[in-house]
Amino acid sequence: MLEVIKPGLLTTVQDKGRWNHLHEGVPISGAMDQEALFWANRLLTQPTDTAVLECTMIGPTLCFHTPTEIAITGGDMAPTLNGQAVELNRSIAVKAGDTLSLGGARSGLRTYIAFKGGILVPEILGSRSTNIIAGFGGFEGRALQKGDLIPIQSYCSNTQGVRKIMMDSLESSSVDTPICLPIIKGPEYRWFAEEAIVDFLKTTYQVTADSNRMGYRLKSQLALAPTLKKELLSSGVVPGTIQVPSSGQPIVLMRDAQTTGGYPRIGVLTEKAINQLSQVRPGEFVRFYLGTF
């Protein structure tokens, strides 16, 4: 077992997500930063869809009741093991009785903790990911709480050395240096005048505080509005879809996004761009440019 001493701000069980159920109205969910999930599991030489803990902004304190091996990737929450600093992006042997503590994010927004053998919660529709809004998956369909006992695989590491990877450090942004994200044209891209598209692509947007796993709300001085005045029936949406509501301030749908929407879809983020955006904090800045998959 893994005992939760402090739960952190928002710590949930996530994997690659709940695919092939959008037509049933079930969101994909899964790790917001899929690249960090991939490498956390690769460091432990296990399937890359193995369930991990996703920690947001402030990480948890965890006590191990069993030996295992872990890897920590994504944002830097200054992890310590029994009070001693440990590195990101490497495998770490853990003994029964050890305590892992993560603090506030010094870079990025989300950190991932993988365990050798994974987190042993039930699969629902082919995934162990938590959908907090619907209240299912993960550990009892919710974020971790103090006192929770999380089942993990016991594993005695006999690794002679540690496995490490080199990853680019996560960017921070400002008005002068926003993070630039590639998009492709959305289904309603042509509803917007050419001048509006030019303005959209040269505008710097700030991520607002009411952004979450379902969607990132952006704000700027620019209010986008489609030139084509046409009622849009509810249509399919996927993570990465950029919707333009009547306010003219874009919403970028993220991993827990609903399956249909009624706002014009001006663009769609690439998969890599979704990963990048998932590490952008509220108050930081982004811009968009036309790219390719």
Rank of each mutant, 00 (worst) to 15 (best):
T61G: 05
T177Y: 13
P178V: 00
F139A: 06
D148T: 07
T159I: 15
L120H: 10
G83W: 00
F115K: 03
V175N: 11
R142T: 06
G75W: 08
I132P: 00
T61Y: 02
S101V: 14
G59P: 02
E69Q: 14
L144T: 03
A114R: 01
P151T: 06
K146Y: 11
D148N: 13
E54P: 03
S174I: 09
M77I: 08
P79G: 08
R163I: 15
F139M: 11
R128T: 10
S107L: 04
G141E: 09
A85R: 02
V162E: 14
P187N: 04
P122I: 09
C156L: 13
S173E: 09
S127Q: 10
G118E: 03
S173N: 10
G104R: 14
L181P: 05
M77W: 05
L144A: 09
D76F: 10
G138Y: 08
T177D: 15
D76V: 00
L81K: 02
L125M: 14
T56E: 08
K146W: 08
F64Y: 04
M57F: 12
V94I: 15
A105L: 04
D176P: 06
G141D: 08
G137S: 10
V175S: 15
T68Q: 02
G74K: 04
G103N: 08
G147R: 02
G74A: 07
A114S: 13
P79F: 05
E123G: 07
G104T: 11
V52M: 12
C55N: 10
L181E: 02
Q153M: 12
S101F: 11
S107M: 05
T73W: 01
T50I: 06
A105I: 02
S169L: 14
P187Q: 04
P60K: 07
